[in-house]
Amino acid sequence: MKEEIIIAGFGGQGVLSMGKILAYSGLMEDKEVTWMPSYGPEQRGGTANVTVILSDERISSPVLNSFDVAVILNQPSLEKFENKVKPGGILIYDGYGIHHPPTRTDIEVYRINAMEAAIEMNNTKALNMIVLGGLLKLKPMVSMENVLKGLKKSLPERHHHLIPMNEQAILKGMEIIRKA
């Protein structure tokens, strides 16, 4: 098993922390893991992205030219990464930030209205966990049990009371992801 994933959006959307939780969940499953962020000014409002690789074997490059899965949360990221999805791969996007949807026909495209759902849940910070839920529905690469363990590992203890809310958001995402 090897999944090469790019998660991209605006800084502040929780792109890096979504990748982190995925990486920690992989750690709990005893997989090899790399988490390679874009770092620097991106974190403060520009575009941010993170490459996460989960594998049963030793991981070679943390830098990739193509991906099995792209999770896209804004238009500039779609323009940057749509062409980097491997043929037959998966692209997930949030309809909220994307005005010109993906056009490729040789990949599977899924839409998740995560921002809408987050607003309904009265918690826009849950956006990234809703998207993670959608991703895990399509690619159950880690078990829910290990995602919760991963959340516990990656969140500082003072935020542990938020774990049930995060679990709810993940379940919501699993429910609302649709083929585009």
């Binding site: 990486a23 893991v33 988490w35 390679m36 962020p37 770092y39 943390p62």
Partner: peptide, 10 residues
Amino acid sequence: DGIIGQMMEK
């Protein structure tokens, strides 16, 4: 370099 410094691994 920045990659080795910033990336997370086991």
